[in-house]
Design a protein around this nucleic acid. Structure first.
Lengths: 395, 395
DNA sequence: GGGTTTAGCGTAAGCGCTTACACGGCACCT
DNA sequence: AGGTGCCGTGTAAGCGCTTACGCTAAACCC
């Protein structure tokens, strides 16, 4: 009493027709007499027939499955990997967003996590994992820009591929990202311009994370553009609460005058910082402002509520899926990089009054070329944070 | 310049061998001369050959893919579905846990969400979605016990299936769940026995969620076993922060003396409650204790930190995957229901002193038969919360 | 009424892979 | 030298499905 496999042939025999007719009924294609259709339908019901996905894929040369590869940064040993504290990260929301979008297309979603430290050590095994995955899908959504460019290129030659939340400087592949730079720029500018913060400390993300890099560069740009402000120090974390704690301890251990703003590359680290500061009796935002990035759910629960930058994750997922669909339909498309606007979310950890809850959409901020801007030929606008209408203002 | 498909034939031709030989090299099976093996290997490399998953599945009659169906309760219209606030739910952790386990087995994971309200309305479409899914996988992990029993049975007849976090009363299929009843029992008993709370209010989960039912029943059992305690009222929520808020408002609106404990069926609702109470200037735990369930990440960040019950999600995922593997190997296995121990996590929202952080593993608590216990023939032990050694005690 | 359509269905050729089986050759035994 | 065995490889038969093509019979045209 195993699971007996009912095939098209069984249905055909049962209904007294050929397999072609069953297939036609199944897909509503081709002319079939009503009478015949009914016979086939009831045969399908009676036998409990379900078409085999593998056989369909093979015959159709199309799998209707896409893969999502999420890259996670972690400092833990694999056996210490703590599911609970990794949850609610960025990718959980991406997964939901993607799933929501592709179900309209009747695709299925294959999930794969690449965990840094665990996997990255042997790029070899990562490659083979990805290749094996690529044999099972029509296209791939791949997180971040952590993979070696040649690995990415190799993959992109084999099948449709869109990088999600990756490095938009990558010009050889499709990329869909949130505008990290502009978001971080607006955030730090808010700290400097609106709250007069001058001495900033940075707790950054892993060097391998392109979004962390963007955020750091944006902060640097604001500092450079505002004489009198300075980066008093920085710490490189791993996007975890623990990293935030360690970064804060490092800042404190440095001694000297306390910086007046702590810019964290994500919310988890900001939360770690908030807790550490609270334990030391350092007041936020009075003694020091703290800001994060991502606007994860707990950001609004902190004490004080965290000022941060909201990522348009759902939009991100939608655009990425759509782009992938386009590429699957037309492989010759030239790669495109898309940047989605972020939102500045003002709560009170930045110095805004308690109870503040404002959201400002951050439109693209023209970015100053790091060097040799003149060479580019066309003049670049200076940096300018453009904060449009407030989107919401609660309370 | 599309994505040209390299097949086994191409490799064979290129290496001057037959396709059987290439296949053998690929899987390291059967004797192949070193010289030949090398030629084939380099042909594979040069052509960038990757075996087609569909063809392999078809030939092997095995897909090496399992599906995970997550069921979400939601009160929102589909277009209002808020990814961010749904994140960090139970299933995000389950997905991670499952993925972690099956990668050892070299399986892939297909994700599917079933969203209540959106999907449940038409059981019809749910069925067809699940059937279509079942054609693409070797087995299914299915969340909760929300599906109509006959749908489940129909599915279970077709392919290996394990219910995760579902109703363990289901005896016809494999089920792996956390011991919600015992966890909730220990939690409420803690409130009543250790903190002397007497007047409880309950914010429960959806009636369709078996775990919510378990938690409610356990609470009722404690109340029944402790004369002098009473349930002053209850509210049925949807496991969301908003529901927690609404439930709290309902409690407040009821007027009369404030209950001295608020038992929420999950952490999100407890968080909603905490915020609402804070706004009203009601002190926790002095005026009223609040407890949750699940121990999601933000539970430790609340003010005051939330006392709750920790679910062994990773263990849950592991056991469920292993069980599924067993059933795939041997379809004749008789269904088994497994209950995993939970942990009581004491922080301070229950009345324990600030800074408390204790975890107690809750072993199985013998459950009193609701009615007709005598009929069962064998005597049942009375309810007794067994709190073993404290597992950790921080600070 | 002979010819041309067309609806309705069956036949069969794949899709890219795995694997049972066959077969040639060499090594080894008697 | 003839037999026996095994190693290394090729041949071919599927796996369950889609779909181009072909055929039959009824419907339609002038």
């Amino acid at each position: 009493m195993g699971y007996e496999l009912v095939t098209l042939y069984d249905v055909a025999r049962h209904a007294g027709v050929s397999i072609a007719t069953v297939s036609r009924v199944l897909h509503g294609q081709g002319p079939v007499r009503d009478n015949t259709r009914d016979r086939v339908r009831s045969a399908i019901d009676e036998l409990g027939y379900v078409p085999d996905g593998a056989a369909q894929s093979l015959a159709r040369n199309r799998k209707d499955v896409i893969g999502l590869v999420a890259v996670e940064h972690m400092g833990l040993k694999p056996d210490q990997y703590d599911i609970e504290s990794m949850s609610l990260l960025f990718y959980d929301a991406v997964i939901r967003g993607v799933e929501l979008r592709i179900r309209e297309k009747n695709w299925a979603l294959l999930i794969n996590f690449l965990r840094e430290e665990e996997d990255m050590a042997q790029q070899e095994s990562v490659q083979s994992r990805l290749l094996a995955l690529s044999g099972k899908v029509d296209g791939l959504l791949i997180g971040e820009g952590i993979l070696a460019p040649q690995t990415l290129a190799k993959l992109a030659r084999r099948l449709p591929l869109v990088v999600v939340a990756g490095d938009t400087a990558q010009r050889a592949v499709d990329v869909v990202s949130a505008d990290n730079w502009s978001g971080a720029h607006a955030l730090v500018e808010h700290l400097v311009v609106d709250h007069g913060r001058r001495r900033l400390f940075h707790i950054g993300g892993p060097a391998t994370a392109p979004d962390a890099t963007e955020r750091r560069l944006a902060m640097a740009a604001v500092i450079e553009a505002n004489p009198g402000t300075a980066l008093t120090g920085s710490y490189t974390g791993l996007f975890s609460v623990t990293s935030g704690r360690e970064g804060t301890l490092a800042m404190l251990a440095a001694g000297g005058e306390l910086p007046d703003a702590l810019v964290c590359a994500n919310d988890q680290m900001a939360i770690g910082a908030l807790r550490t500061l609270a334990e030391r009796g350092i007041r936020v935002p009075d003694d020091i402002a703290v800001v994060g990035f991502d606007d994860i759910f707990p950001a609004s629960l902190c004490e004080p509520p965290l000022t941060t930058v909201h990522q348009p994750i759902r939009k991100l997922a939608e655009v990425a899926c759509d782009r992938l669909a386009q590429r699957i339909n037309d492989p010759t498309l030239r790669p495109k990089q898309e940047l989605l606007p972020t939102e500045l979310v003002l709560r009170s950890s930045c110095g805004c009054p308690p109870g503040t809850m404002e959201r400002w959409e951050v439109r693209h901020v023209a970015r100053r070329k790091p060097t040799g801007a003149a060479k580019s030929g066309r003049p670049l606008a200076g940096t300018a944070a453009v904060a449009a209408e407030p989107l919401t203002a609660e309370r």
